[in-house]
């Protein structure tokens, strides 16, 4: 079974690979600028006290994204990748 979830659903401490970025316009450009492209490995680091934004490890730096934005990013969690390969 191949499971794809949106980035905001990835639990703290888990990693995954970006598959699709469904944002457009300025938001999309900003995400690409961070190095969030299909194939990038992302790890959820921590949630802010209110649960939004959430901080991720992206290419060696920790970046916080609002749930609005991370919802538009689809990822394949690592555990799933391991099972499929």
């Amino acid at each position: 079974m191949l499971m794809i979830i949106s980035l905001d659903q990835l639990p703290v401490g888990e990693s995954g690979i970006v598959t699709v970025i469904d944002a457009h316009g300025l938001t999309r450009r900003r995400l690409l600028d961070l190095g969030l492209v299909p194939g990038t490995v992302v790890k959820t680091i921590r949630k802010s006290p209110a649960g939004d934004p959430i901080a991720y490890l992206i290419r060696g730096s920790i970046v916080a994204l609002r749930v609005n934005d991370s919802k538009q990013i689809s990822i394949k969690p690592f555990s799933e990748v391991a099972i499929n390969e």
Binding site: R30, P53, I62, R66
Partner: peptide, 9 residues
């Protein structure tokens, strides 16, 4: 409010 990313250095 528009989208926003914040680095935690």
């Amino acid at each position: 409010s528009s989208s926003f990313t914040l680095e935690l250095p």
